[in-house]
Each structure stands twice: as structure tokens, then as C-alpha cells.
Design a protein around this nucleic acid. Structure first.
Length: 108
DNA sequence: CATCTGACGACCG
DNA sequence: GCGGTCGCCAGAT
């Protein structure tokens, strides 16, 4: 499966903003929901300028295992995103993908 | 081909 | 709010 659409959307996340796996899955209408979105991020190739650290769990919670969580927190804070106990102030930094050429029929 | 696993999230106690 | 279970699905074994 090609996760290109996922990476493409992640790259569009504005600096200093974050999005959740669920919102990501919903925006792209991924069949498996949030879990599938997480799968896509887990498979994210590094060194491609993909801001994977801007993707967090529901309510802005950092769900990834160490040592990534620490790295993610560091990266987000460097962008001005406030992190509290491995949690992002989602209400303040949450981002909703802008509607554009949105898909009309789910994959598969 | 049968199982297990996991960068999720909704539910329940 | 926290921990355990369940459903989902694609990849790995």
C-alpha cells in the first residue's frame, strides 16, 4: 500500500501545529481508521522532510515509544508548541486539514 | 495459509 | 484520569 497521500498531508501541516492520527485517517478516509494512519507514520521514511513529529494521538498525547517521544517533544517545542507531560496543548495547536480535492470514495 | 503485532481510538469499570 | 479489552488492517513471521 502507498502511504504517499498520508505523507503529503503531513507535509502540509503548518509549523507549530499538530494533527491526530484519527483526524489524519478521517481526512484521507483510510479504511482502518486511526490505526492505519499510525501504521503509515510508523513506516515514514526518515530524511524526507516529513514532519512526522507533528502527528500525535487523540488530545495531543504522544503515543510513540521512546526514544522517539523525547525527540518529538523536543522538535515540537522548538517550533513553539507547548508540551506538558508528553501532551500537546491540542486546543491551541491542533490543526484541521484544509478541504481541498478531498477524496469522495474510500480506498480498496 | 495461520498467527501475531502494533507511532489508534472508542468503551467500560 | 487510568488501565484493560476489542475492532480494524497491513506487514512480518
Amino acid at each position: 500500500m502507498s502511504w504517499d497521500p498520508v505523507y503529503k498531508l503531513v507535509k502540509q501541516i503548518p509549523r507549530g501545529r499538530v494533527i491526530t492520527y484519527g483526524a489524519l485517517a478521517k481526512a484521507l478516509q483510510l479504511r482502518g481508521g486511526a490505526r492505519t494512519a499510525g501504521r503509515a507514520l510508523a513506516a515514514t521514511p526518515s530524511g524526507r522532510g516529513i514532519p512526522w513529529h507533528r502527528v500525535v494521538g487523540e488530545r495531543g498525547k504522544l503515543l510513540i515509544p521512546e526514544p522517539y517521544a523525547s525527540l518529538q517533544r523536543k522538535l515540537l517545542e522548538s517550533e513553539g508548541v507547548k508540551i506538558v507531560e508528553f501532551r500537546v496543548d491540542f486546543a491551541k495547536h491542533g490543526w484541521v486539514p484544509t478541504r481541498r480535492g478531498k477524496p469522495k470514495h474510500r480506498k480498496k
